[in-house]
Amino acid sequence: MKIEARIFELLTAFFFLAGIVYTICTAFSSRGVEWAGVTGMFFSGGLTLIAGTYFRFVARRVEIRPEDYEDAEVEDGAGELGFFSPGSWWPIAIAAGAAMFAIGFATGNFWFAIFSALVIMGTAAGLVFEYHVGPEKH
């Protein structure tokens, strides 16, 4: 996880530095500062900062992976990678909620978009907790 954290931290530095340079360069134009680009640059830096911080915290808690070694071989990472649900219908429901949200937002029907956002949150919770029900529920 240290590799991923380092990548996102470098991206954070790049976006913030590019945002500062972009702000300075557009400030001297005839129209003034171009706020959409400046906002996009700094928000991108903030999002990469969030991801990098998450990976840095997770890297402290998990054991060292083969990807973290300089001299690791491909076969060092062999074995089980995790559990993936073979027959879950929740991703389809999440996609349907996302499509409904896009339609509601694009058409200006904000009540429908809010309802669709609630559908997305509910179906995402269903996906996360799909296998966390007690044995009496099966």
Rank of each mutant, 00 (worst) to 15 (best):
R56Q: 12
A27K: 12
A59G: 10
W89Q: 12
G52L: 01
E130W: 06
G19R: 01
A106F: 09
A18T: 05
S88I: 12
Y131W: 11
F115C: 10
G40Q: 09
S116R: 00
G104K: 00
G97I: 06
L47M: 04
A51K: 10
V119R: 02
I3P: 00
P91N: 09
R56C: 02
F43H: 07
Y22C: 02
M1P: 03
E75A: 13
V21F: 08
L47S: 07
N109D: 15
V33T: 13
E67I: 15
I114Q: 09
V62K: 06
I120F: 09
A5N: 01
A59R: 03
L127H: 07
W89K: 13
D71R: 13
F14N: 08
K137P: 00
G79N: 08
V21S: 12
L11M: 12
F83Y: 11
V38K: 00
I92G: 06
A124G: 06
S44H: 12
V21Q: 10
I50K: 03
R65M: 10
G40K: 05
G77P: 00
V133H: 08
S88Y: 08
L81Q: 08
Y131I: 11
F15Q: 01
S116W: 05
A117E: 04
V119N: 05
A102I: 13
A98K: 11
F112T: 14
E4S: 13
Y54F: 08
E9M: 12
W90T: 15
A72E: 02
D68G: 08
I120Y: 01
L17H: 09
G77A: 15
L10K: 14
F55G: 01
F15N: 02
S30A: 13
F57D: 07
F28K: 00
A13F: 08
I94C: 08
A59S: 13
G126A: 10
E9T: 14
A113N: 05
G45E: 03
M121I: 15
A124R: 04
E63P: 00
I94E: 08
P66S: 08
T107D: 07
L118Q: 06
E70C: 05
A98C: 05
A117L: 13
F16R: 11
E75R: 12
A113E: 04
W35C: 12
D68Q: 04
T23R: 14
V38C: 07
F28C: 01
E130P: 00
V21C: 09
A72H: 05
V133D: 02
I64G: 00
A117R: 00
I64P: 00
A27R: 09
I24V: 13
E34L: 14
K137V: 15
E80H: 06
I114G: 09
E136I: 15
V62D: 00
F42R: 10
E73T: 14
E70V: 15
W90K: 05
W111V: 15
W90V: 12
E4V: 14
G104W: 01
D71H: 08
I20Q: 07
T48K: 01
W111R: 13
A102N: 03
G82K: 09
H138Y: 11
E80W: 04
T23A: 15
W35D: 11
W90E: 15
W111T: 15
V21D: 09
A36E: 12
F57E: 11
A106W: 03
